[in-house]
């Protein structure tokens, strides 16, 4: 499984007075098993890009090749593409609707024509994978759960489709620090267990730096950077001009350097920075 995007361009309200170029000649490739972080200011085109990857939006030009199939060519089964690429929107808990947790998670797989045994097995596996107690919660109404739990149920619904690529749009927004850390652990577990592609959108630079193999930086509809966390977060000036920021540890590292402290490492985590300072103090 791989995802390849070639010269993707998308225009909103084409021909209308408020026509706008949402995606401008985007090209990148994501390999099997990669964890890719996506950052960019509000309106930079992140969500528009994601919605192309499972065929919710059609490009004006360019191609999107999912697992060898160009999904922009006519006659492609979107159903098949959406089974391969699972998309978790922002605040997915608002999409819960069923009477019980198990029924809600089963909704997707039930529409795939699977046997009841297979559906039940997938539902149980997905609920466990998002770190919820299956026996205790399967018959509970999803609306009685906490915010963080609801979000996991919604994510379980997408995982139960067994997507080979999982796209998460700001899965930690609005959660307290512990629930936030739990969701990140959950995403890591899913990535390890299912060894799928993960595309992870966030405004939290700490999370992006810690989780990603590679980072895509969107700016005004263009792909402005594509590199490792270290490559991206050493380009401080450019990022700040785009309205982005550095991870806290990197921000501290850069400022300490400017004040003359000779920190050689590019510290993406606070513990790494503490190590570097301790080393300097010898």
């Amino acid at each position: 499984m791989s995802i390849e995007v070639r010269n993707l361009t998308h225009v909103y309200s084409e021909g209308m007075p408020h026509e706008s170029l949402a995606l401008d000649d985007i090209s990148f490739r994501v390999e099997d098993g990669e964890f890719v972080g996506i950052i960019g200011h509000t309106g930079s085109g992140k969500s528009t890009l994601l919605q192309h990857l499972n065929g919710l939006l059609k490009p004006k030009s360019g191609s999107i090749i999912i697992d060898g199939t160009d999904i922009t060519s006519p006659g492609v089964s979107m159903r098949e593409i959406r089974c391969k690429v699972g998309l978790v929107f922002q605040y997915p808990e608002y999409q819960l609707f069923e009477e019980t947790v198990a029924k809600d998670v089963a909704f997707g797989p039930s529409n795939l024509g699977l046997s009841q045994e297979e559906i039940d097995a997938r539902v149980e596996e997905a609920i466990r994978l998002v770190g919820l107690d299956y026996e205790r919660l399967k018959d509970v109404s999803p609306f009685e759960l906490s915010g963080g739990q609801k979000r996991r149920v919604a994510i379980a619904g997408v995982i139960a489709m067994k997507p080979q690529a999982l796209i998460l749009d700001e899965p930690t927004a609005g959660l307290n620090p512990k629930a936030h850390a739990d969701i990140l652990d959950m995403v890591n577990t899913i990535h390890r267990t299912e060894s799928n592609i993960i595309l992870f959108v966030s405004h939290n630079m700490n999370d992006i730096a810690r989780m990603s193999d590679r980072i895509l930086v969107m700016d005004h509809g263009r792909l402005a950077m594509n590199g490792t966390p270290e490559e991206v977060f050493t380009r401080e000036e450019e990022l700040k001009q785009m309205g982005l920021a550095l991870p806290d540890a990197m921000e501290l590292t850069m400022r300490l350097r400017r004040k003359g402290m000779n920190i050689e490492q590019n510290c993406l985590e606070i513990s790494a920075l503490a190590d570097a300072i301790a080393q300097l103090r010898g």
Binding site: H41, T42, E170, A173, H203, M205, L244, A245
Partner: peptide, 12 residues
């Protein structure tokens, strides 16, 4: 009430 939860770094 959590006025910055949905904002990008500059917006925050």
């Amino acid at each position: 009430d959590e006025p910055t939860a949905m904002l990008d770094p500059k917006g925050r």
